Amino acid sequence: MDTVPPPSDTPVGVTVEFAGEYFTLAPGERFTIGREGDLTLDDNRFLHRHFLSIEDAGGLWWLVNIGSRLSATVTDTEGRVQAQLAPGARLPIVFAATTVVFSAGPTTYELSVHTEQPAFRENVPSLDDDGLSTIGAVPLTVSQKLLILALAEPVLRREGTGMSELPSSAKAAERLGWTLTRFNRKLDNVCDKLDRQGVPGLRGGVSASATNRRVRLVEHAIASRLVVREDLAMLDDPELVGERSR
């Protein structure tokens, strides 16, 4: 990743994209996102009235978490760089296109922020000796990938940015033809694997913690491109039916 010349004292404009709508911000503007604000996402009681803001300071645009409970996953469009934006935290918007994914209750939201003058530009990652890129690579079994796909299916089927309702564990298990016990065991396995790789928010738990873990798994999978829309064919591939019982 190369640095371009330092930004000027006054940043150029940025554009926020959500569900096919575009909002262009001029320097000096402050843009709020939440249940209310400049971008009103949804009448979702789990969502803060004002959750995120975009504002300029010191020659850069910043994404700021002005909420008190929810966090957002922020990544470049290729999923190579990922950060958690906790309540009270802020991140500079340094990529030409930045993806922001977060959840409130069972609903997952995705928006993107585009800047005309990024502070960084991305290089194509170098390849290992075997010709494979290992940046962000997480080896998954077929059943682990199927589990993630079953949970992330509504998000992946959506065109572009927007919001999606995540299925319950029971619905996702039914989609795969698994028992709920088998699904939960596989969910434990994949969450443990990602937790060992440093992905936060995937520790086991019950009640609300279990729901948050499932939501966090989808957030990470979407933001890091662990699963993509083209993978959805696996859910209906008869050749994988045998894999589902493993």
Rank of each mutant, 00 (worst) to 15 (best):
D38L: 01
S245I: 13
G105S: 07
G177Y: 11
N184P: 09
R121F: 01
T211Q: 09
G58Y: 08
F46Q: 07
L151I: 07
L140W: 09
P87M: 05
L202M: 03
G79T: 05
G205V: 00
T24L: 02
T161N: 07
F120A: 00
G79W: 03
P106L: 11
L180F: 13
E165H: 11
G204D: 10
R157M: 12
P11W: 00
G88R: 04
S126G: 09
V12I: 06
G34N: 03
L91E: 05
T115V: 05
R185Y: 07
L63N: 06
P92W: 10
F51C: 01
V101Y: 01
R246K: 15
S126M: 11
V241Q: 08
V215E: 14
L166Y: 01
S209C: 01
E230R: 03
T181G: 13
D188G: 13
K193D: 06
R90F: 12
I33M: 11
R225G: 03
N212Y: 06
L140Y: 12
D76I: 03
R175V: 04
S169L: 13
E174F: 10
T77Q: 09
K171F: 14
G204Y: 02
N184Y: 13
T15K: 04
A152L: 03
I54R: 02
G88F: 00
R90G: 12
R182Y: 14
H48I: 00
N65L: 05
S209N: 11
R30N: 10
L149N: 05
N44P: 07
P139V: 08
G59D: 05
N65R: 14
F102I: 00
L111H: 01
L25D: 02
S8L: 14
L146R: 12
Q82S: 10
L240R: 07
T107I: 15
L156R: 10
